[in-house]
Design a protein around this nucleic acid. Structure first.
Length: 537
DNA sequence: AGTTGTCTCGCCCTCTGCTGGACGTTA
DNA sequence: ATAACGTCCAGCAGAGGGCGAGACAACT
């Protein structure tokens, strides 16, 4: 087992789910973990020891929304099975142990997981069943294998070896002391010394467990338990591990569960369940599609009564789950929990390609499809040539441009009217570059109305712009301005553009468009001076 | 007392669609 | 230069599917 070398878990990896906290202590647990990020061992005053998940427990790997901290916890009175992980250091690969008094063959429903760390640095997980744990700290197990099939785990018998150093037990007790309450799987500066003494290392570095399921020989799935040195803080920042990478098909997960304790197998798929009721429900969902619970308001029907109850809230508007920070209230707990991210700023989903973070998995999924996929789906508008990346945006496009409006929309250039914006816009584009202003007296046509107004004066003789100094009249304001400057403004100095070739002066070269004209004239000037006559002052 | 079946709650997931800011284009 | 407009994009919520697991009554 070479889990320590895995800095980035492969896709197949699934995390061991954080052991469920006992409800009335969950808050306290959370606070403690938030405070120091250290996994803890809880003292169980009246228990026989640390209670662990059954053999199937860790195999029931659940996709996590939150990256778990590994919690070493003692059992609570609820008898919830908790995965127990312990670090075991061997002074050598041939280490032996002593003191097997803690073994209790009567406890057949418990299973331990331990970490074996040999001198070679290889770390392994050890399953051990049928043990009570009142003296867990005194136990060291020998590990021969690193990858086990489920069947192997179930029948596995571990060889117990004698501990070869007398003082090790005390050291280990110290390291795992409940009073110290670190509970972390430890490794660090003191490790060498402890190892030299045959004891157990202690440091504050957290570790990270992964469970990988992969096809094994003869069609059997193998469960690979990987003990990594990834610390929990690092993992906290990479929740995509459990979302984008660690997600596994539920069937694979269930296949692990199906062996042993799930006698009710589905005849149509590989699923298996603990109770017949679960099987019946599953068959209704997946195969028979029988939905006994029917809504009296609409045609909705559900497999479960609770789903109908939830659905009814969409009719009644009932929102029992009130946000404590704003006015939002939801119809179910999940939506409230999801909503709370808007207050906390939590973005638990991270794109594994660009590391952008998102509040919802669906948003991340869409991001990956749109930004990082090759064959990005496009949506063709049925009414025009527009292609839009998102279905929802196509809906907006249709709403804005192709919705029939009862109120007529008039073309700004002609009397035409339209009932949808797209048609109006397309029509108005036909007026572009169109010389739609035509003179009634001649063939002159132009694009702008103001040009036509000026032109018409050439036919009517109208000269509305009068010089206040000499009463001379002009058709255009601009002509009046030029006249006034030239003949009535004493400060006016006419600009003269001199041809560098012949030295003759010109009055018009004021803008860029004229610059090219001047250059052309200049070139012509060297060959044909007649051109100057057209531009001379 | 232990087992089994049913009911119920709760969690987590996906799919869907709306919204508004950002940004580029066009008039 | 500016405003209007269209598309891109992430944020967010609604709705419903699927399943684990506890509570409890009925049965053996």
């Amino acid at each position: 087992m070479a889990g320590a070398e895995l800095s980035v878990p492969p896709e197949q990896f699934t995390q061991i789910k954080e052991p469920e906290l006992i409800p009335d202590r969950a808050l306290e647990e959370e606070e403690e973990e938030e405070n120091d990020g250290v996994c803890r061992v809880k003292e169980q005053p009246d228990s026989a020891g640390l209670e662990v998940e059954s053999v199937q427990g860790p195999l029931q790997t659940t996709i996590l929304e939150e990256v778990p901290e590994l919690v070493l916890t003692a059992p609570e009175e609820s008898e919830k099975h908790i995965l127990t992980l312990q670090t075991v250091h061997f002074p050598s690969e041939e280490a032996e142990l002593q003191d097997l008094s803690w073994l209790d063959p009567q406890q057949e429903d418990e299973m331990q997981v331990m970490v074996h760390q040999a001198d070679s640095g290889v770390q392994s997980l050890v399953w051990f069943g049928e043990v009570a744990q009142q003296s867990l700290h005194q136990c060291v197990l020998n590990v021969q294998e690193e990858v086990y099939s489920l069947q192997e785990m179930e029948v596995m018998q571990f060889q117990l070896l004698e501990e070869n150093v007398t003082g090790a037990g005390e050291d280990y007790k110290s390291a795992m002391s409940l009073e110290e309450s670190t509970g972390s799987i430890k490794k660090g500066q003191e490790e060498e010394q402890l190892l030299a003494e045959g004891g157990f290392s202690e440091n504050t570095e957290e570790h990270f467990f992964l469970v990988e399921a992969r096809p094994g020989d003869e069609g059997r799935d193998e469960i690979v338990l990987t003990f990594s040195n990834l610390n929990m803080e690092e993992q906290k920042e990479k929740p995509e591990l459990d979302q984008a990478h660690l997600e596994k098909p539920s069937t694979t997960k269930n296949q692990k569960k199906a062996k042993g304790t799930r006698p009710h197998k589905c005849g149509d798929c590989d699923m298996a369940f603990v109770t017949s009721g679960e099987l019946t429900r599953h068959r209704r969902y997946k195969h028979t599609h029988e939905k006994p619970f029917k809504c009296s308001v609409c045609n909705y029907a559900s497999v479960e009564a609770s789903k109908l109850k939830r659905h009814i809230r969409s009719h009644t508007g009932e929102r029992p789950f009130q946000c404590s920070l704003c006015s939002y209230a939801s119809k179910d707990t999940y939506k409230l929990k999801r909503h709370m991210r808007t207050h906390s700023g939590e973005k638990p989903y991270e794109c594994h390609i660009c590391h952008a973070r998102f509040t919802q998995s669906g948003t991340m999924k869409m991001h990956i499809v749109q930004k990082h996929s090759e064959n990005v789906p496009k949506y063709q508008c049925p009414h025009c040539a527009t292609i839009i990346a998102r279905k929802s945006d196509l809906r907006v496009h249709l709403r804005n441009l192709h919705t029939y409006e009862t109120v007529e929309m008039k073309c700004r250039y002609c009397p035409s009217v339209f009932h949808d914006r797209y048609s109006l816009i397309q029509h108005q584009k036909t007026h572009k570059n169109e010389k739609r202003f035509k003179c009634d007296y001649c063939s002159y046509a132009c694009k702008q109305e103001r040009h036509m107004t000026v032109h018409i004066r050439t036919h009517t003789g109208e000269k509305p712009f009068v010089c206040l100094s000499c009463n001379q009249c002009f058709r255009q304001q601009q002509l009046l301005n030029v006249h006034f400057k030239k003949y009535h403004d004493a400060n006016f100095v006419p600009t003269v553009y001199e041809c560098p070739k012949c030295g003759k002066g010109f009055s018009r070269w004021s803008v860029n468009a004229k610059a090219s004209e001047f250059k052309q004239k200049q070139w012509q000037c060297s060959r044909n001076s007649v051109i100057h006559a057209e531009l001379k002052l």
